[in-house]
Design a protein around this nucleic acid. Structure first.
Lengths: 238, 238
DNA sequence: ACCTGAACACCGTTCAAGT
DNA sequence: ACCTGAACACCGTTCAAGT
């Protein structure tokens, strides 16, 4: 807690909104502030009281725009889902689906702290079902029948969920055992894990992701420039 | 909260442990009680105070066996990981790896409420790294080289993580939008989603899981009895 | 050595009250 | 109409105290 109002009368600061020229509270302002708060402090710091402090209002004022914290979380998830671009209609269907997978992964990296909520949140808002419908239609173009399209959508979704969670909250950054084993123990007891460690490093994540995606979706088209060294990677930004 | 001590003096009940013949508190007893509490009430009900009530002791007594709630969570994850059987050494490597995947999925269904914690928990206890080492060795037998083995382990892990989360906490059972769209909206705006709904039903989960696993790992060996209708499923129990 | 219970610094949410 | 702040029923954890 570095800079938390050294003023002796914090209530004077909190009054700013009503007395001063502060813009009125809006849903968008609250969503932006919440995303910033989560990005800075993680989900552990995401409380309505902290959010009120960031917005210079009382926590309970937020209930005027969002009837509960759950409604606000829905707004955050919608914001993240809506941040994904529409797939480029000029690409062949299989490449469009591959792009969607890369765009989803890019989204998980744009909202790393929020992603553990996004991953298991039902997408049954208008924004959410629009994303699902759009993706299912591309899958249908790829497979040519509804059943295979549904299964491809689902298995690709499992894979994207797991990848995003592992990369944002999992082995690399997630909660560790309170008393983890040390490197000497690994070297002694787990030789295959020791030999695998270099392929688990962050620099290998792109190649691993593309390998799994190719297995689920079919191989990517031959690279235009030869001999890139197998580092396909996620190139698109947003 | 159906049956919560109608007695007018709950403190008398809490005293039972010290005065009576109650067995002493052990780590195992606490882990079992915590798993039961989570299974009954979900992670939302998993507090040290509730756990103390289930064990008829003060919440603070738990600190004697586990220095923090995080240490207890490590114990729960270890318990779940240790519940998976060792793979049958008589099977060919690829089938052994497929079994491990099915065993992991079975574990996620044995601890559905806990699984959202298991999925992102680093497995760096002795039990955890033993599971990783054992699985990596099978993957190494399948691929024949360390790099492909590491990537196969990782991508299969992503897939298992996503599957387990989706089946235990995701679209089917997970948190819903506070104000979801209704069926009429889906039928009108999302025809491909409407056509896909039947393949998303719980009865299709086994077939979908096996389809994705076959894509990542290679097809399962031909079924012994012909014309089973594509419903391979997860047969082993534990 | 093992367990207790008051206390501390937090939560989300309700509600009567202010302007 | 919009915002406040006290209050309620919870958290994990600390700590001095009991037996």
């Amino acid at each position: 807690m570095p800079a938390r109002a050294p003023s002796p009368k914090p209530s004077a600061l909190l009054k700013r909104r009503r007395g001063g020229r502060a813009p009125p509270l809006t849903r968008e302002a609250i969503v932006e502030a919440a995303l910033g708060l989560i990005a800075r402090e993680g989900l552990g710091g995401f409380s309505l009281r902290n959010l009120g402090r960031a917005l210079r209002c009382e926590a309970m004022s937020l209930y005027h725009l969002f009837p509960s914290k759950q409604h606000l979380v829905d707004g955050l998830v919608d914001h993240a889902i809506a941040s994904m671009p529409a797939p480029d209609a000029k690409l062949p269907p299989r490449e469009r689906l591959r792009r969607i997978a890369h765009d989803y992964r890019a989204m998980s990296r744009r909202y790393p702290q929020l992603f553990s909520i996004i991953a298991v949140h039902r997408l049954n808002t208008p924004t959410g079902v629009a994303f699902i419908e759009r993706t299912l239609r591309v899958a249908r173009e790829v497979t040519g029948d509804d059943e295979s399209a549904a299964r491809l959508f689902r298995t690709m979704g499992y894979y994207l969920m797991g990848t995003g969670l592992d990369e944002t909250s999992g082995y690399a950054k997630g909660p560790s055992a309170a008393e983890p084993v040390d490197g000497a123990y690994i070297a002694r007891e787990c030789p295959q894990l020791a030999r695998s460690a270099k392929y688990f490093a962050e620099g290998e994540w792109d190649a691993t992701f593309d390998a799994g995606l190719a297995a689920l979706l079919g191989p990517a088209p031959a690279m235009r420039k030869k001999k890139l060294g197998g580092k396909a990677g996620t190139r698109r930004r947003r």
